[in-house]
Amino acid sequence: MMTNYGNRVTQGQFSFLPDLTDEEITAQIKYALDNKWAVNVEYSDDPHPRNTYWEMYGMPMFDMEDPAGILMEINECRKTFPNCYIRVMASDATRGTESVKMSYIVNRPSVEPGFNLVREERNSRSQGYTILPYACNKPEGERS
């Protein structure tokens, strides 16, 4: 078990709050749509902080204007991958940004075992650090 506040991975915008309800998720989706950002859903069983490319649950929903439709996609993803981390992201295509504007976790595995910090002794007391998620101890196909 993780020993930080909430005993959980704290990536994303709202990990320090109680899990968002569907109604709260819908409000956040609406904010993204009001800003003309494209929303997409991603899932992963590897919460390493530098694991950038989670699996995409479909393409970004560029033309979906109804928050309820997006929530439906999120719930489909939750049903398919109940024991994965799932995050909702929003992308802004405006010049000067052209990047991610929102990212928040909406589903977690029932157990979050955390990370092993592996130290490598180097010269002059310096150390090399490697962070290994316990969740990835097994091969990819045998994890959940």
Binding site: M2, T3, Q11, R50, G114, S126, Q127, Y129, I131, P133
Partner: peptide
């Protein structure tokens, strides 16, 4: 520098964040 980087990496492992 050495102590701060120990702290940074340990905190990263404790939270899963950069």
């Amino acid at each position: 520098f050495l102590y701060c980087m120990e702290a940074v990496n340990k905190a990263s492992a404790a939270t899963g964040e950069i």
